[in-house]
Every structure is written in structure tokens, then in C-alpha cells.
Amino acid sequence: MTAGTARTSRPRGPAQLQGIQALRAIAALLVVFGHAAHEAEAIAARIGVPAIDPSFLYWGSGVDIFFVISGFIMVHTSAELFGRPGAWRIFLARRIARIVPLYWLLTSLLLIGSLFVPQLLNVPIGDWQHILASYLFIPSLRGGSEIRPVMALGWTLNFEMFFYLLFAGAMFLPLRRGMAALAVTLLGLALIGMACPTTQVQVAFWTQPMIIEFLFGCLLALAYRHGIRLPPAVAAACVALGLVAMLRLPGIDDPAWLPQFLRLGIPATVIVAGAALNRGDVPRHAWPLVALGNASYSLYLFHPFALRPLRDIWIRFAGASLPLEIYVLVAFAVAALSSVLLYRLVEQPMSTWFRFSAAPRPAPGPMPGTTAT
């Protein structure tokens, strides 16, 4: 990488990856904002004050950013494995060690909580088949109306795991042919979803057009491997313009001719491009985001556990004496702090143990770069 190493006072890692880590924090905080606003709405209804209106922002666009980042990281970290014997096993073992332990732990805590404090749940837990599907990352109907696992936020992980399987299949081929096969597969699935809608739950879920956002990230990683870089000013402009595009702009918002996965997927890709292809250093003021980005997975999964009880605490002790905007700020702080602690005390040790105890060793293969033909 051309950026070099960071100073010891900065978060460790190349500047390119630091920018991606900062984006992970931003993406997670967008989701936290949406859920904090939802909790604030519930507080407003209880205490009889006006609710906060979060509709000015596509806060769900944090997921689109995550998907583009995921595609980028998969190619960036695994490109040299393509075409090697057993590459798919190595890749899946790494991803399972990264994703599964914390998700299964929090899903189990949610199930235990449903037995003792069911009043804290916004929706009821489904039957045993739904629970099993949730653990196995298989899309399943919750309440007969929406495709959500026991932990609702896990719907994005159902997408992630499906993408990992497709990506692992592409690794049987050299990099270029593998990426071409993956692109054809993702585009084909999206076209099926748009042209042939179905009521079959798993097919309907896996053929949603937003799956193409993973491909956008893969293409950015290929651009990075080919040496494409952006001047710092251009990279910063990409991030800024992409974030502005995720606002609901009066008069030009939601054009009928632009599908939703492009409405948010294109800005997400522009944002990730600004971070991933930036040939400069991460600005000093972004360092806290880089640090929080390390805990972004914990932040994404755990923040509902922090916000739901915070709602009751706020109603009891603050009520209408403080504006709900303050509640949102407190929710950000509580979610961030608790997630950093969870990351350091639970997620990181678990992932490290699983990664080193269960991941297979790479098999001998061609020298780096020879698998790209």
C-alpha cells in the first residue's frame, strides 16, 4: 500500500484501512440514530411531547455502506487465495470466526431475556423453526409478515453469509475469472428478483437487488489493486457528496426511475471509494471514528440492548424535563461506550480464539499475483 504506516499515536494500520474503519463507525452510528429516534418516539408517546422526526435522513443507508465495505474487504483481504486448494475453507473459517460467535451469543441472550423480561421485547419471539433458522442464517418469516431473524438486525447477516458462500464458490477460480463469475451471479440474482418476484421466502430474500451493493465493493477493491488512487481533496469530496446524497432532498428525492438499491447503493459506493482509494492520511479529527470502527460490529448488534432499557430509565428520571434531542445524544454515548467494552472484553477475545483454533492453514499455492489471470 502506498500510504505507509501510521505514527504510533494514531490508530494502527494503513491509512486506507483506517478510512474504512472510520466508515464502519459512521455506518453503525447511522443505524443507531434511526433506532434512537424510534425509541424517542416511544418516549414522546408516553410523556406527551412531540416526537423527533428522523425522516430527513436515510438512516438505513448505514446498511448500504456496510454492504459495499464488505465486498471491498473480502476482495482486499482474500485476493491472493483465489485458485488455491482449500481457499474456500480458509475464507469461510475466517468469516465464521469473525461473525458467528458474537451473533450467536447475543441471539441466545435475547432468547433468555424473552423468558424473564418479555415486556422489554418490541416483537414476540417466533417458534422453534424460526429460532433455528436464525442461528443458521436462513431467512425466515417473523410474525408471518417480515423476513427477520430473532435478532432483527441479523437480517443483514443473512445477506452477508449468503454473499460469503457465493464468494467462496468464486474462489475455486483464479481471481479474474472468479470475480467475473461472482459478478454474473450477483447480477443474475438481482435480475431474477426484479423480473420474477416470488413469495418463496428464501428466494425472495436472496434475490433482492441490494445484493449488487456487495459487487460494487468488490469492484472498488479491484480498482485499488490496479493502483487507482484519489487525491485527498477528491476523496474527501466523495465522502461528503455521498453523505449529502443520503439526505431526503425536497423535490428531487426518490425519483421513480431510480431503484432504491441504486438510490442508496451509489452514494454508499462513492463514500467507500473516497475512503478506500484515498492516497492521503486519515484526518486527525477522524481518529475517534477509526477507534470506534474497530468495535462497529459490536455497536451494530448490541445497541438495541442498550437503547431499550435506556428508554425506561429516561422516562422515569428525565421525562419531559429534557428535550428528546438530548436523549438521542445520550443514546449515542451509551451505545458507543457499551459496545467498545463489549468489543474489548467479549468480541475480540472470542473471535481471536475461534480464528486461531478453528481456521485451517493456507495450502501452498502460486506466488502472489499469479492467480490473477
Rank of each mutant, 00 (worst) to 15 (best):
I315E: 10
R225T: 04
Y103A: 14
H76P: 03
M350Y: 12
L342Y: 02
L307G: 08
L165E: 03
I313W: 15
Y327N: 02
V184I: 14
H303Q: 12
L23N: 05
P349C: 06
L182F: 04
L17K: 03
E213Y: 04
D127C: 06
A181S: 12
L264P: 02
R316F: 11
D312M: 13
S78K: 07
D254T: 12
I65M: 13
W59T: 12
A44S: 12
L132W: 11
P174A: 01
F159T: 12
F137I: 09
Q16D: 15
G217S: 08
S134I: 07
A275E: 08
M74T: 06
H285K: 06
L329R: 08
G193V: 02
I313K: 03
Q348G: 01
G143V: 12
S70H: 03
H76R: 10
A223I: 10
F159E: 14
P267I: 03
T373Y: 11
L307R: 06
A359G: 02
V49T: 12
P85V: 02
P118C: 11
P255G: 09
A133R: 12
L264F: 15
R176I: 01
M171W: 01
R284A: 15
W104F: 09
M350N: 11
P362V: 02
R344K: 14
R225G: 08
I125R: 05
L310F: 13
S351P: 02
L292T: 13
P209Y: 03
Q18W: 05
D127K: 05
E80P: 00
Y135H: 09
A291F: 14
A204G: 13
P267M: 05
V340M: 15
F356D: 10
V234G: 00
A45V: 09
F162N: 04
R344C: 13
L175M: 10
F72L: 11
G319D: 04
R229P: 02
P54M: 11
V346C: 13
A237F: 10
P368H: 00
L310R: 03
G34I: 11
P85A: 14
R148S: 10
L342S: 04
V272S: 03
F317P: 05
I192D: 11
M161N: 09
L23E: 04
G178I: 07
P288T: 05
F33I: 06
L341S: 11
F91Q: 01
A51Y: 04
I26C: 15
L292K: 10
V203R: 12
T371H: 14
T207Q: 08
P232M: 08
I112A: 15
G188V: 00
I125F: 04
L345R: 15
T185H: 01
C196P: 00
S296N: 04
A359H: 02
G144L: 08
L342K: 00
